[in-house]
Design a protein around this nucleic acid. Structure first.
Lengths: 134, 134
DNA sequence: CTTGACCTTCCAGTTGCGGGAACCCTTATC
DNA sequence: GATAAGGGTTCCCGCAACTGGAAGGTCAAG
């Protein structure tokens, strides 16, 4: 199976697959001509990686998940802890973005958006937190 | 005013201030000894940048906002357009993260999190979108 | 004169790849 | 046999927005 075909099946760009090999997430053997010889297990790992990444797990999280995935003896509590940590980070990010959205929406709503030069958005950015001037 | 003092007032690390100078957001003159001589206008610009960045505007957005801020003749519509574009990006990001959160929360909820090796989270990552295996 | 706290520049690393150069392998066609 | 197309390979640079650290100049105090 060529890397392009693997890429299609796993849903990842070929570049990304080479990168994952480079950082040791997969270790496909090589054919005599130097081409990568992907095994079924490599393709499955790559699919796993694609899905985990699409859920926002960092590559390092993915490395850990992959290790847990390969080690059937490992307790599911480990996986759960990792996923929960990630979930909490995502929730924190959501809260943060919602706060940003509220502030920005206020500013945008306050702005007439016409030809006049005075703009409440710029005014809002000129003073206020953070950076308590003088 | 030393860079440390400016950093304190603007609410930015000194490193970041040097970086902002390097990319041309500010252009403080120098003293004979080579130290940066920040003017009041530099400090205000840095405060503006700190606030805009904290609202999630990219540095390039900040460059544009700064130009609009300095050009009092410019219509507020320009600023509003920039802010609205940013607001939309943020809302898209929120939606995306909420979707991730839902999926992750489902997986975490389905996982017993005990010592047993079978884990619904890993199972969920093993199949399903993306990467339609074979 | 030395110590310590500043300041300066420059270089490397971060995350997760993407772009592109330069080159090899295979197959088909002329 | 030459060659062109369409794979594959490595390697290195670049992105955003800094952060850390090394190496060295400056300044005020003791």
């Amino acid at each position: 199976m060529t890397i392009t075909e693997v890429a299609r099946r796993a849903g990842l760009p070929a570049k990304t697959i080479r990168y994952y090999e480079e950082i040791g997430l997969i270790r496909p053997p090589r054919r005599p001509n130097g081409y990568r010889a992907f095994r079924a297990s490599d393709v499955m790992k790559l699919g796993f990686l694609a899905r985990a990444r699409s859920l926002g797990f960092s590559v390092e999280d993915c490395r850990a998940l992959l290790a847990l995935w390969e080690d059937r003896q490992r307790a599911s509590a480990d996986v759960r802890a990792l996923a929960r940590g990630h979930l909490e980070r995502i929730e924190g990010k959501i809260t943060e973005l919602q706060s940003l959205r509220a502030t920005l929406a206020d500013l945008v709503a306050a702005c007439a958006g016409d030809h006049r030069p005075d703009c409440p958005i710029l005014a809002g950015l000129t003073e206020g937190p953070p950076g308590r001037g003088s």
